[in-house]
Design a protein around this nucleic acid. Structure first.
Lengths: 358, 358
DNA sequence: TCCACTTCTTAATACGTATTAACAAGGATT
DNA sequence: AATCCTTGTTAATACGTATTAAGAAGTGGA
């Protein structure tokens, strides 16, 4: 009858006993460090044999306890990830992070647990993120106080998306909204548009501010003075109706519209409805382009002209930076900006008055 | 000027020093075990305050070395998650796991790191999963030896999908392929089909075996004897051409085909091509149904009749079971089977000879 | 006054590994 | 014969936490 299998996994002590050496020797042989070759060949063989017989495997917890690092990276999102609404928004980021994390030989810790109704980083005054060696942050509704606290603690983290914090240097990987928007403006100008309406989100977050900067920069490059009345805050994207567009093309002489996609489907729904209406046709009566990706989870009726964020790239880069940061001196911060890609689409055309130039 | 923060992460000893108590008391307060409420309220507050000030967070390695719980659940997939190919296959599982994990107040550890080219659980003999309290497993190319080792170690895990291991009881959450396939057969019989071709995957994994069982069960329930020649192994799903279908409808009198979707897009590509061909029309000349979800990442030309796995449900249930298991005695195993849902689609119709019954 | 009892806190220890300093045993050099 | 290397091995310790048994301080009863 076979001896009852040991309840406990074999440890280096077990091997040592069996091979007639000390635990220290076993460790030297098995972890094969720099000092490993000072072990006599006969001893080494005995240890390896004993290890094989017992089916030894190192205890990862003990090892990382000794070393201080867990070989874990965290991913924290300020909003829940799982609602289907957000699925297509978060997925590329998630995949990018997981891919690069794996490539770098780390495991990924998804911080998702809900503590007392919210998803705070600091729950009970304790920083949950610290389970990981460092953390990638993601999300729109950032809680600045928590960010500030993270900085104060000098915890290594990288934000996906540009984030500013007064009095602190944050590390982030951002999309170049400024250039992308500016280029889009240049393209419209090239097509003869002069009066371009910019529909801005009311909340002045970094991405919105960047887009506005790009808008101004694009016009400036084309030598067009900014008409402040053409920068309009659109509280509810659903307001973007045919009547709304007609108002601007009529009284204000607008020939093109730039609009920021909302995080929900309100904008694309409104656009789809608008483009189905007969009174106003895109791009014939008016060109329209999106300053970013629309949430793609709704079947799209048409291929909107827009620019697209390099999400997977941003995510991968964030992980790389984070790993750099782990080895960097305290307080170091790095910022990277990646270019967006232009998606021609079918909602932009020549300005109406130039359509038949000859 | 603020004093330079210590390089080292604060430990319970640091908190103890600051709060004027012992490390043991700190542990009692922070880990909040059963004995936690015997700590005086004043002491508790002092400890919590000190912990907050120092930015304490538990050292996961130390805790799991000690044998305590980390409030971490793991998710291990036998294939990499990130290739876009698999995206729609894995996503619902991933989301379900993350949702339920969060709801239960756990964090989720994604085991993704690649060590020496493969994604082994035991890499270099190390069981990486052990950092988590328990683990949800997922994937097709299961490495049985590793599963066996996990069982031997008595590590709590739940498989998504039915898995068998000789000589061991595994915990899993499976889709009821048997009933779903049987019901599909019954539906075909109801529509007058008598000779139903079953295209089986060559590899005899559990899902395939279950589908075959359902096929036989459905026919038996209808009082139809199984013609073994109608159970055909389809090595390459791309072989499913119009000529192939015609062969069966012609010489073998087949009026309906059941086929297992492949994990890649070969099958749906072949089907799309076939349904575009003029020589053979579905469901007019022959009905066809899929025994599961096709990978949906390819734009589908039509809505295939099929059944669909309750993926998110399976994932959530797996997490629940896993948490049960954490409190259960060693060796306990639980199996749950969830029903699939029927998707009518448009590729199944009455058997040809009954189409105009009067 | 002494003892029993409750309430709170802590000393001590175990977990498994990696590392350092020390040590033993020869062999070679003075 | 004393000293100094060299080579191989080990004792001791640190890492940070959870847990248990024991101790201290206080309360109440006889």
């Amino acid at each position: 009858m076979a001896p009852p299998r040991p309840q406990r996994r074999p440890t280096q002590v077990d091997i040592a006993r069996r091979a007639g050496v000390s635990q220290a020797t076993v460790s030297l042989v098995l972890s094969g460090g720099a000092v490993s070759d000072q072990v006599a060949e006969a001893t080494r063989q005995a240890v390896l044999a004993a290890a094989a017989e017992l089916g030894y495997s190192v205890n990862i917890a003990a090892r990382s306890l000794k070393g201080g690092r867990n070989h874990l990276l965290g991913l924290y999102t300020f909003e829940p990830v799982f609602p289907t609404d957000q699925r297509d928004f978060y997925f590329p980021f998630l995949m990018g992070v997981e891919e690069e994390t794996a490539r770098q030989g780390y495991d990924l810790l998804l911080f998702s647990s809900v503590s007392s109704g919210d998803r705070a980083i600091y729950s009970g005054g304790v920083n949950r993120l610290k389970l990981a060696d460092g953390c990638v942050l993601l999300g729109r509704n950032v809680r600045r106080e928590e960010l500030a606290e993270l900085v104060r603690e000098d915890f290594p983290f990288v934000f996906i998306g540009r984030r500013e914090l007064p009095g602190a240097e944050l590390s982030y990987v951002a999309a170049d909204y400024v250039t992308a928007t500016s280029d889009l403006v240049a393209e419209l100008v090239r097509l003869g548009h002069r009066r371009i309406l910019y529909l801005r989100e009311p909340a002045g977050t970094e991405p919105t501010r960047d887009r506005e900067a790009g808008y101004r920069q694009g016009l400036a490059a084309a030598g067009i003075e900014v008409d402040e009345s053409l920068i309009h805050e659109l509280a509810d994207p659903a307001d973007l109706s045919p009547a709304f567009a007609e108002h601007w093309t009529g009284t204000a002489g607008v020939t093109a519209i730039l609009v920021e996609p909302s995080e929900d489907n309100r904008l694309t729904t409104a656009l789809d409805a608008t483009s189905r209406a007969a009174t106003m046709r895109f791009p014939d009566d008016c060109s329209i382009a999106l300053l970013g990706d629309p949430p793609s989870w709704t079947p799209e009726l048409r291929d909107w002209t827009r620019f697209s964020l390099p999400r997977a790239d941003m995510a991968r880069t964030a992980v790389q930076i984070l790993i750099d940061l782990l080895g960097a001196p305290r307080g170091a911060a790095r910022q990277v900006t990646l270019p967006c890609s232009f998606v021609p689409g079918d909602s932009v055309g020549p300005a109406p008055d130039r359509r038949w130039p000859r």
